[in-house]
Design a binder for these strands. Structure first.
Lengths: 344, 344
DNA sequence: CTGAAAGCGCTAACAC
DNA sequence: GTGTTAGCGCTTTCAG
């Protein structure tokens, strides 16, 4: 069973370091060091061992390595969903964000562990952290989980959250200036002569709240009386926004513009309005938020508040790696800008 | 150091099973069994132990568990890129596919390990397999890696590839009927009176080749003489397609329709044509492939060959889990259909 | 420079 | 029912 010499690989696929050691006629430690490029091992021997490993298709078992080293070379990307488990599929925003993050992470030779989480179950974050599957965590959107994040932030450092700053947040936060975005949108609409501006969206998550606050501020700055009838709640899906806009139209409330929480909602509003005979922008102007890829392709193209996701993703990953290295890192809010297209 | 009673958790975050065992006054194995829901342990004790673990935020260390169990509860989703590492960001097709797969996988309580791979380096697939980070592999697109996949398929079972069937493929393959898709597109264009139909795209990956073959077949069926000047190579990016179409326009070759390898390329062609004064579809009709979300939002909306990605993803994950369970599983080619919108 | 040995945290025979 | 024990495959002191 233990033929000492150059035994052939056993059944392909379950090689371990000991096998390579035997083939090379050295000890396991030497193989480990050689494969790690440790200069203690003379270059010739090192190359020899690497060569043997390669020709036999041997690769270090990562579970064992992770257990020993307490590190996984993996970053967890977490998408917290409050209820609707189906959102991810349909939500281009998440997808674009994930793509960007994945690129940044793989550029650093880390892997991406994608994790769609239902936040209803308390302890979800602890469970992820304690499972030790990832060396760091990127949370896309606070959702309603500010408290949970804060609770964990004190003792768990390598975590960066995409979202909006809430007073007293103790976790590292990266995001856009949502409030200013909301204000910008309204001010643009006002400059176009609109007075009856709808806010379309949920007001639960911090990002939403702040966009709404910006909306309120913009309305106020314009000297327009705030009308609560113009605040139309809608979940984050296309379908819900459509329902909401249909309800609005049916209600008979007069309006000449819509500022939506996101492009997804804005695009849903756009088509719903058009389908019921309204012209955009002449009857109703529409402004979105995010500037997803779709925004420039709608008819008419969507005027929107642009978040630079590429930069955002880069910053998130940057800060995360700094935290993983033990540094502290500042929360960062990036400016947004209005992209004027034809819908408003 | 070893206070036997209910010692408080040590520094939060590095609890192990032994700690819980001590707190519960039982042995490690009992904790392990209790946490696994093993009915050998009486329900009362089991609940007690689970309770203790929960209040202390203890969760089983997955590296250790994986090492012992030789399973990771993780599926690797691999995006092979031949050269252009930037493709992923911009490519809505990958993103939609990843989203769909992630939903299917998380529904089964597995995690998703995202892996963008540069296929130039030989041995990339072995390296992924041997690292034992995932219990199964989903490869999105064969790219030019048919040989590599075949080489591995004999000894590594839990792998499903999205792509197009190549004679002699020994790996489990899921995909669409690319050839019929190409034929359908051309036949639609011919029915609309087009005779000078461009094929826009690369012809390296099997999917591309087969769409091209369908194109050739459609042209032939229509009794149109094949004109090689109408085959316009383009990489998989928007930018490259734009360049290619500009080149085509500059060349003076006459054409009245474009069938593009993908919607991304078709949309790039659309805007490039419009920008240079051509009207779509009256001057040039355009047909794409995939039916990504963007397709229905362009101006005019894009006529395209629809692949049902949701179904495709479900099938892939289904087959993969069957293979992981030791069953064999058949390759599956799904039908495509033409979605007639306004661009052709 | 190289090897022996300890142990990362867990699960599952195998005793009792 | 429960505990003892032997690894899973690796890295890294610590000796030589």
């Amino acid at each position: 069973m233990d033929s000492p010499d150059l035994a052939l690989a056993p059944e392909r696929g379950r090689l371990k370091m000991a096998d390579i050691a035997r083939m090379a006629g050295v000890s396991i430690s030497t193989v480990s060091r050689a494969l790690a490029g440790n200069p203690l091992i003379p270059k010739t021997l090192r190359d020899q061992i690497v060569e043997i490993a390669q020709t036999h298709g041997y690769v270090v078992n990562q579970s064992a390595r992770s257990l020993r080293l307490r590190k996984t070379d993996t970053i967890g990307v977490i998408i917290p969903l409050a209820h609707e488990a189906g959102q991810m599929i349909s939500d281009p925003f998440f997808l674009e964000m994930v793509g960007r993050l994945a690129d940044e992470i793989t550029r650093r030779d880390y892997l991406v562990l994608l994790n769609k989480v239902i936040t209803n179950e308390p302890g979800w974050l602890d469970r992820i952290i304690q499972s030790h599957r990832a060396d760091g965590l990127l949370i896309i959107g606070q959702s309603t989980q500010h408290e949970a994040l804060n609770a964990v932030a004190a003792s768990y450092r390598p975590m960066v959250v995409w979202g909006a700053p809430i007073p007293g947040h103790r976790y590292c936060l990266v995001g856009s200036d949502n409030r200013e975005g909301g204000r910008l949108a309204v001010s643009h609409l006002v400059a176009r002569g609109r007075r009856r501006i709808v806010f379309l969206g949920e007001i639960d998550a911090p990002e939403a709240t702040q966009r709404y606050e910006g909306y309120r501020k913009g309305v106020e700055e314009a000297g327009i009386a705030f009308d609560p009838a113009l605040v139309i709640p809608s979940h984050y899906t296309r379908e819900d926004a459509q329902r909401a806009v249909e309800g609005l139209l049916a209600s008979g409330v007069a309006f000449d513009a819509v500022f939506a929480f996101s492009d997804v909602l804005a695009l849903a509003a756009l088509t719903t309005l058009q389908r019921s005979g309204k012209r955009v922008p002449s009857d109703v102007a529409v402004v979105g938020f995010d500037d997803i890829l779709l925004a420039q392709h709608s008819t008419p193209p969507l005027t929107t508040i642009r978040q630079d996701l590429e930069a955002g993703a880069r910053i998130m990953v940057d800060l995360l790696f700094r935290r993983m290295a033990g540094d502290s890192s500042p929360s960062t809010i990036s400016p947004v800008n209005l992209v004027a297209r034809e819908s408003a």
